[in-house]
Simulated scan of single mutants.
Amino acid sequence: MQHFEVVTAVAAPSDEVFAVCLDVESHTCSMADSSERAVGGKTRGELALGDTVTFQARHFGLTWRLKARITSYDRPRSFVDEQESGPFKRWCHAHHFEPDGAGGTLMRDVVDFASPLGPVGRIVDTLLLRLYMPHLIRTRNAYLASTFD
Rank of each mutant, 00 (worst) to 15 (best):
Q2H: 06
E5T: 14
V7A: 14
V7T: 14
A9P: 12
A9K: 14
A9T: 11
V10G: 05
A12Q: 03
S14T: 07
E16R: 14
E16H: 06
E16C: 03
F18I: 10
L22G: 08
D23S: 08
D23A: 06
E25G: 10
H27L: 13
A32I: 05
A32M: 00
D33E: 13
D33G: 12
S34K: 10
S35N: 15
R37F: 03
V39K: 02
G40T: 03
T43A: 04
T43N: 04
R44Q: 11
R44I: 06
G45D: 06
E46C: 10
L47D: 08
A48E: 13
L49F: 03
L49D: 04
D51H: 03
D51N: 10
T52K: 05
V53P: 02
V53Y: 00
T54E: 10
T54G: 06
Q56H: 04
A57W: 14
H59G: 01
H59R: 10
F60K: 10
G61E: 08
L62I: 09
T63Y: 04
L66M: 13
K67W: 00
A68L: 13
A68S: 15
R69H: 02
R69M: 10
T71V: 13
T71H: 01
S72I: 00
P76K: 07
P76Q: 07
F79I: 03
V80E: 04
D81Q: 02
E82R: 06
S85N: 10
G86S: 07
P87N: 07
K89F: 08
H96T: 13
F97G: 09
F97K: 03
E98T: 15
E98S: 14
G101V: 09
A102I: 01
L106R: 15
M107K: 10
M107V: 13
R108M: 11
R108D: 05
V110P: 03
V110Y: 01
V110D: 15
V111P: 03
D112F: 00
F113L: 09
A114C: 10
S115Q: 13
L117R: 12
V120R: 03
G121V: 04
G121F: 03
R122I: 06
I123E: 06
I123P: 01
V124N: 08
T126N: 13
L128I: 15
L128D: 07
Y132V: 14
M133C: 14
P134S: 08
P134L: 06
L136H: 08
L136Q: 15
I137E: 02
R138L: 08
T139W: 04
A142T: 11
L144I: 15
A145D: 08
S146H: 06
S146Q: 11
T147C: 12
D149H: 08
D149K: 11
